[in-house]
Amino acid sequence: MALDPQAQALLAAFAGMPALDFTQLTAPAYRAILAAGGAFAPGDPVAAEEDMLIPTANGSIAARVYRPVVDGGDGGDVNALLPLTVFFHGGGFVSCGLDTHANLCRCLAQRAQTVVLSVDYRLAPEAHFPAAVHDALDAVRWAAANSADLRVRPGPLAVAGDSAGGNLAAVAAQQLRHGDVTIAHQLLLYPVVDCATEHPSYESKGDGYFLSADQMRWFKDQYFGPAADHAQRADPLASPLAAGDLRGVASATVISAEYDPLHDEAEHYAARLAHAGVLTTHVRWPGQIHGFASLLGVLDAADHALTTAAHALRHALHVEPFRLR
């Protein structure tokens, strides 16, 4: 269908800004540009937000816990245990963090009735691949082993992420499927799942729709560094689409955007999961651009997509708050 009118208006506003030269752009300069940008709606009110540190093999990383107002209650009952969702933010492996994705996390927490643990993994190029992957896996393992400290329901948890964070969530679902962590669901919002191959949507949707093909190439160069070869980019730790066997991976909800250079790889991944016998729901959001779910207050579709995503999480996690005896 045609580009959503609200997305079209947003793109028209962006069109008046100076174009980025990705041959000269540095990661600090890019982060500064993002920091100077406007804020979007803050998302749903939640009962509590708590900053914390997660120990990993490479030192502590920052994280934030979002606790929803419990349905039918005031959110103050510490004995009402909810399931956990571990969330990884997008930003091309280079930018963004806890604050940029707080609105998205608040909505998922409140609407899905899940505690959300948002993980501030190490960014490139200061930390090249596979640093972010190691942080993500360590964070999920730690969360699963420390449900009492997190005051969440022990047992199966969900992983979720958007864009580059969707990559980390997908990798975690693959890598931890046969271990001690039980992942009940993976929620992937327009994920990066192939760092080695450019699919046809790079050409058809790679210019003029917010995220560009040139920008994605720059992100990948920052993530892998100058010494990386094709084999490293095709490693399933970087490109979950390249994994040979997807059997036994957690059920999935994949939301792609029609006007996104990543939509071909996201949809291919959803199809491969389903072919492997994984219970998979794929929704291609019509008329929308990459990153749209974060644009609360600007795009009506953001609110609708987060409700859809939260419903999937709630169903997969069998949300039904119970109380300690």
Rank of each mutant, 00 (worst) to 15 (best):
A164Q: 10
S147M: 04
V152P: 10
Q175M: 14
G165W: 09
H178Y: 03
V171K: 04
A144D: 11
Q175V: 14
A158D: 03
A144T: 11
D180V: 01
D180A: 15
A173N: 09
A158F: 11
D180I: 00
A170H: 04
P156T: 14
R151N: 13
V159T: 03
D149S: 13
L157A: 01
P156E: 05
A170D: 08
V159W: 05
A173H: 06
A148H: 09
N167T: 04
S147C: 13
A145C: 04
S163F: 06
P154S: 11
D180T: 14
V159F: 08
L168W: 02
A173C: 06
A148L: 12
S147Q: 12
G166K: 07
A145H: 09
H178W: 00
A158C: 05
A170K: 07
R153W: 02
L150P: 06
L176S: 02
S163Y: 03
P154C: 03
D180P: 03
G165F: 10
N146M: 02
R177Y: 08
A169H: 13
D149A: 15
N146W: 03
R153T: 14
D162F: 01
D149C: 00
G161L: 03
G179E: 13
D162P: 10
A172D: 03
A158K: 06
S147A: 15
A144S: 15
L168A: 01
V152I: 12
D149Q: 14
L168H: 01
G179K: 10
P156Y: 08
A160H: 05
Q174M: 10
G166V: 09
A173K: 12
V159I: 09
R153Q: 15
A170N: 04
R151T: 00
L157F: 02
A148I: 02
A169I: 06
A144Q: 04
Q175C: 09
A160S: 15
L157N: 01
A173D: 12
D162A: 15
Q175G: 02
A145E: 13
N167I: 02
R177G: 12
A173F: 07
H178Q: 15
S163V: 06
G179I: 08
A170P: 14
L150M: 11
D180G: 14
D162Y: 02
L168Y: 05
